[in-house]
């Protein structure tokens, strides 16, 4: 027997999933399904789209309309689904590489359009599926199989990137702060526009081992000890935020939503007919 959540929202015959022991993606995936449950969404009206990479295997396990696309292109495929059937709740599950490297162009344009798609970036700071290369969010100086002498790249702050491009809901959560993440996913789905959550995950197998981050539990504790809620951070002096990262909700505003604006054009002609 399995949990009620699994029975109701998963293709249990496809479990256990392929992710490594201690990979944070299972926690993030669970949080997404828990948020969908809490919102009482109709499973037939939820469409989960993903790209390529460890993160993007999630939809296969989830009992919704699911679409596993090509590397970096989840948001473009999802835009087609959402435009064609706006009544569907479209959620994109993507990785840090999938969304901000090869998929970067689609990310900024989906945000610019403010199309009602909830994008959750399973951000584990590494290309896991291909064996541990560094990614656009790998911290400068860290190691990856393609950064054997230390990563000289600067990394993206995905939430700020999406906000600058026009997203109307941005937030960051972590695999450790799963309770909060569920709430963030709920709010992101409720936002009638482009929502992005930078969901920090952990990759013990590659990123953790290569950078000597200790055990799975050590990596989870690192998240616990280095995340500061954005509201709390406002009251803290700068030195308290040294080496920390912000979690929680960063932006939550309402602006015209793309498919609704297009529907207005269609309705203009329906009245004429």
């Amino acid at each position: 027997m399995s949990s009620q959540l699994v029975q109701q929202y998963y293709r249990a015959d496809k479990l256990p999933h392929i992710w490594c022991p201690g990979c944070g993606h299972g926690i993030l995936m669970r949080s997404v399904s828990q948020a969908i449950h809490n919102l009482g969404l109709d499973k037939d009206k939820v469409c989960i789209v993903s790209g390529i990479g460890c993160s993007s295997r999630a939809p296969g396990y989830m009992d919704f309309n699911t679409l596993h696309t090509t590397h970096g292109r989840a948001l473009a495929f999802a835009t087609g689904v959402k435009m064609a059937r706006p009544e569907l709740e479209v959620i994109v599950v993507t990785g840090d590489g999938d969304a901000t490297a090869i998929g970067g162009n689609h990310l900024i344009h989906a945000a610019r359009r403010n199309i009602n798609i909830t994008t959750i970036v399973f951000n584990n700071n590494v290309y896991g599926m291909t064996g541990g290369q560094y990614s656009p969010t790998t911290p400068t100086g860290d190691l990856g199989t393609t950064a054997p002498y230390g990563n000289i790249d600067k990394s993206f702050d995905i939430a700020t990137l999406a906000e600058a491009a026009g997203a109307t809901y941005t937030a960051r959560g972590t695999a450790y702060h799963a309770q909060q993440l569920i709430k963030l996913v709920e709010n992101a789905i409720k936002n009638k526009g482009f929502s992005l959550i930078d969901a920090i995950s952990i990759c013990p197998t590659y990123y953790g081992r290569k950078n000597k981050k200790g055990s799975v539990v050590d990596m989870m504790n690192w998240l616990k000890d280095h995340a500061v809620d954005a509201k709390v951070a406002q009251k803290l002096p700068p030195e308290k935020l040294e080496g920390k990262f912000l979690i929680g909700e960063f932006k939550n505003v309402t602006e015209p939503e793309y498919t609704e604006e297009y529907q207005k054009i269609i309705e203009r002609f329906q009245k004429e007919r």
């Binding site: 027997m1 399995s2 926690i27």
Partner: peptide, 20 residues
């Protein structure tokens, strides 16, 4: 435990859903 289990291997379950 259920909240943070990546593999759905531990959970608070009722007895009525024993069968699956």
């Amino acid at each position: 435990c259920e909240l943070r289990c990546p593999d759905f291997a531990i959970f608070l379950g009722g007895n009525e859903d024993e069968e699956k």
